[in-house]
């Protein structure tokens, strides 16, 4: 994914996109949109494979058209995939924050949804734009509140992981000695555990609340962060600016927080986008297994688990939260890929 982008830019930089390819892109975009609309709205399910292939082709055309148009407008270095990823994440954060203000149908309490049709297919112009599940609960509403859970768990666990991991890793990498040996032994032992198994062991005994799941995930990430922080600290502690700070009489805590922390923070943070993606997947997997946050609180994982039984004739109950989950993980991975390229000089070695 990365390599094509770069050489693309080189080639495109040599031959700047002219208006013709931009206009072609605009045409492609319009044609793709029309084809998407026709194949989604006008063709019924009896068209079978033709419908699916048409949708795929149409979405491909929309993306290619958008890419050409955006390069025409913003220059040949514009990375459309990255911006779309950022847009999706921002949208998600917005709807998660303002979920309570949105005019959503009931997605939580079955007794409030007795009048609602059950297993209604998605129809953007109805009162349930993304359909309803087996109990008549609104899928769009579930998606919004599920986004809230996913984001809180993902960001929360990473924040805890970074805080603990950085503190311990910086101290171990700077003070060395016995502290470092003890920390290394602990992290090695924790990393020796298969993460999912350790997590299952923890949820076996903790009650599945958002806070507990977040802490359990944070525990999984701490050893990785300690390692990352320690490795970076070791590299920077040898540098002249640390030595000169020490010669000027700075105290150790001050050296760590003022000299080392700003340098170590960047690679650690750039690594975190990928970790957030992993955590969102893990939380969804746990709630899919019924071991994390469970009904009545909707999460993407338990929505998918609920729809799984009728996958054959009502696939939308799985497809809608599934697509949201995939797009989110994809976006975080995409942003993380770019962030590590920009900020982490050690990326190749990790």
């Amino acid at each position: 994914m990365s390599a094509p982008g770069r050489s693309d830019a080189v080639i495109a930089g040599r031959l700047p996109l002219n208006h013709r390819s931009g206009l072609f892109g605009a045409g492609l975009l319009v044609a793709g949109l029309v084809l998407t609309w026709v194949s989604l709205m006008r063709l019924d399910a009896s068209a079978g494979f033709i419908k699916y292939i048409l949708v795929a082709v149409a979405l491909g055309a929309v993306f290619q058209g958008l890419k050409l148009v955006s390069k025409w407008i913003f220059g040949p270095l514009f990375d459309l995939g990255l911006w779309l990823s950022a847009l999706w994440i921002s949208l998600l954060v917005l709807i998660a924050v303002f979920a309570d203000l949105l005019p959503l149908r009931e997605s939580r309490d079955v007794s409030q949804a007795l009048q609602a049709p059950i297993r209604q297919r998605p129809n953007l112009f109805s009162s349930h734009p993304l359909g309803t599940d087996a109990q008549g609960l609104d899928i769009l509403g579930g998606l919004v509140y599920g986004a809230r859970v996913s984001l809180i768990v993902g960001f929360g666990a990473v924040l805890i992981g970074i805080t603990v991991g950085l503190t311990v890793g910086l101290a171990a990498g700077y003070y060395r000695g016995k502290l470092e040996s003890a920390v290394s032994f602990l992290t090695d032992s924790m990393l020796a555990f298969p993460p999912l198994i350790l997590l299952l062991a923890m949820v076996a005994v903790l009650s599945p609340t958002v806070a507990n799941v977040t802490v359990a995930l944070a525990v999984i990430s701490v050893p990785t962060y300690i390692r990352l922080a320690r490795a970076n600290t070791l590299a920077f502690a040898q540098r002249e600016f640390v030595l000169s700070a020490r010669l000027l009489g700075e105290r150790n805590p001050a050296i760590i927080s003022r000299e080392l922390l700003p340098n170590v923070l960047l690679p650690v943070v750039s690594f975190s986008f990928v970790i957030i993606a992993v955590f969102i997947v893990t939380e969804a997997s746990l709630s899919f297994l019924g071991l994390s946050i469970s009904r009545p609180n909707p999460t993407w994982g338990n929505m998918i688990a609920a729809g799984e039984t009728r996958l054959n004739d009502h696939p939308h109950a799985v497809a809608v939260p599934g697509v949201a989950l995939f797009l989110t993980v994809f976006s975080f991975n995409r942003i993380g890929d770019r962030a590590r390229k920009m900020w982490d000089p050690r990326e190749a070695k990790l």
Binding site: M1, A284, V318, V329, F330
Partner: peptide, 18 residues
């Protein structure tokens, strides 16, 4: 490959089943 990495295993399983 990039998409497959972003596909959670349980979704991949349901996709294959479908």
């Amino acid at each position: 490959a990039f998409a497959a990495i972003s596909l959670p295993p349980f979704l991949a399983a349901l996709l294959l089943i479908f």
